[in-house]
């Protein structure tokens, strides 16, 4: 597999949300608008690239039995860095995403990639893998966020195109479940064609 394939596999074929249904919590919770979804996706992508790179560098130095705890420490460190940086430079977005920033640490995608890919591959391919997966995640979040924002508030990227209210339920909790359900069903259908 060349690096290009390695990079693009996270977009559709192995997209963490749409194909593997990993990392659902932030997907549902933070996609009330396109901007929020993208913000969450980028934060996660940063952690993915960072942790994948460091894990790949240290993979041979870490004894097998303490592999998972070591990975968790590395991931938690990157999450804390993102947490502090966002608090300092994008405080509004930080407040909207709230508890889901520290919770990146338990996002199955991050630990999953560290364990399944980064611990067995070179630093370069791990970084690319992290970036590809992160972008795939960001893309899915952005699309879902835009979809819910369009239906729910009649705007996209905070640009209003209809007056009055949208279909409120799509911004509320039930809309998140339903929108993601149909999104995955659609992808399944296209894939099976």
């Amino acid at each position: 597999m060349n690096q290009l394939q390695n990079f693009t596999k996270g977009f559709v074929r192995e997209n963490p949300i749409l194909m593997l249904v990993l990392g659902c919590c932030p997907t549902l919770a933070t996609t009330t608008s396109a901007v929020n979804g993208l913000g969450m996706g980028i934060a996660t992508a940063f952690v993915l690239v960072g942790s994948n790179t460091v894990v790949a560098m240290l993979a041979n130095l870490i004894p097998d039995k303490v592999r998972i705890p070591s990975f968790i420490i590395i991931i938690a460190s990157f999450v804390t860095v993102v947490d502090l940086l966002m608090k300092a430079y994008v405080p509004d977005l930080y407040e909207t995403l709230g508890i889901f920033i520290p919770l990146i640490v338990v996002n199955c995608i991050v630990l999953g990639r560290a364990e399944a890919f980064a611990s067995k591959n070179t630093v370069l391919s791990s970084a690319i893998d992290g970036l590809g997966m992160g972008l795939g995640f960001t893309m899915a979040l952005g699309i879902l966020g835009a979809f819910r924002e369009i239906l729910g508030s009649g705007s996209v990227f905070n640009y209003r195109f209809i007056q009055g209210d949208g279909i409120l339920v799509f911004i509320l909790a039930p809309g998140a479940f339903i929108a993601l359900g149909y999104f995955i069903a659609l992808v399944n259908r296209v894939k099976n064609k």
């Binding site: 240290l58 130095l61 870490i62 303490v66 705890p69 070591s70 420490i73 590395i74 460190s77």
Partner: peptide, 9 residues
């Protein structure tokens, strides 16, 4: 290794 990683982190 765990100590080192924790310290660096």
């Amino acid at each position: 290794s765990l100590t080192l990683i924790s310290l660096v982190a």
